[in-house]
Computed example of a mutant assay.
Amino acid sequence: MTKAEIRDGFKFRGGSPSLDLAATVTGRLGAAPRDLLAAPADLDRWLVAAELAPAAPGATEGNLVQARSLREALYRLALSRAEGTALPEADRDLLNGFAALPAAPLQLGADGRAHLSGDVRGLLAELAREGVSLLGGDFSHRIRQCEGPPCAVLFVDTSRKGERRWCSMSACGNKAKAAGFRARERSA
C-alpha cells in the first residue's frame, strides 16, 4: 500500500523527508508564497504527518525558527543539485551543523514498529542527516524540480529511465497532460 501524497494538509511527493520538508512552502515560485509552518503546532502536525513522530512532540517558537532555517537550506541545496550548480557554502554549513547535533534515537515501540524518539531538535537533526545522505549520495543526480507550473516541489526521480518530469503523476502530471490534450484539440 502506498502512502497518501497529501497528509494533514502537507504534500509528501518528494520521495525523501528532507525534500518533503522543503515542500512546506506553497506557491514558492509565485507572487504570494505561503508558509505551511506558520506556528509551532504546524511543525508538530508536519512531524506526525511525515511519520517522524508518533505524536506531537511539543515544538516551540525556537524549534519553528530552526525548522524553517533547515527547510530553506535543504531547498537551496536540492535546487542546486537539480540545476547542476555548486552547492551554496552557507547552506552546506548550516545543514552539516544540524546533522552534527544529537539525533532522535530509533526505538522499537510496543506496536512492534520502529519509531524515532526524542524532542523536535533531535528530529530536525535526523532530517538533516537524511538530507546529507540524499544530497551527497547515489541519488543526488536524480533530484528534480517539478515541471508543472507553478509547482516548485523538488523530488527524487526513481523512475527506471530517470526522465520523470512531475512531482506526482496524479497531480501535476495529470494537469500537464490534460492541458496538452486540450491544446491539441483546439489546434485540430
Rank of each mutant, 00 (worst) to 15 (best):
D20R: 07
L108E: 05
V48Y: 12
G112D: 06
S117Q: 10
L70K: 01
A188S: 13
V156R: 11
A110H: 06
A171M: 10
A171L: 13
A82Q: 05
S159G: 08
L74E: 01
L43H: 07
R164N: 04
A41R: 10
N96H: 15
E72M: 08
A4L: 13
S140F: 07
A103K: 13
A39E: 14
P105S: 12
G9R: 09
R129S: 05
E61Q: 12
P149A: 15
R34D: 04
G84Y: 08
S168A: 15
C151L: 09
D119I: 04
V120L: 03
P150E: 15
K175G: 00
G162F: 03
A90Y: 02
A125V: 04
T2R: 14
A103E: 14
A82H: 05
F181W: 15
I6N: 05
D119L: 07
D44A: 10
G162P: 06
H115Y: 06
A179K: 15
L19Y: 11
L37T: 00
G14Y: 04
S170W: 02
A125K: 05
E126Y: 12
L108C: 05
E83Q: 14
L116D: 00
D8E: 14
A67R: 07
R182P: 05
L135W: 07
S18Q: 10
A128T: 06
P54N: 02
D42T: 03
D138W: 02
S159T: 14
G109S: 14
L79Y: 01
A22V: 04
K3F: 11
S18V: 13
E51I: 00
A22F: 03
R113V: 12
W46F: 06
R68W: 06
F12K: 05
L70P: 00
L87Y: 02
R165M: 05
A188M: 12
T2L: 13
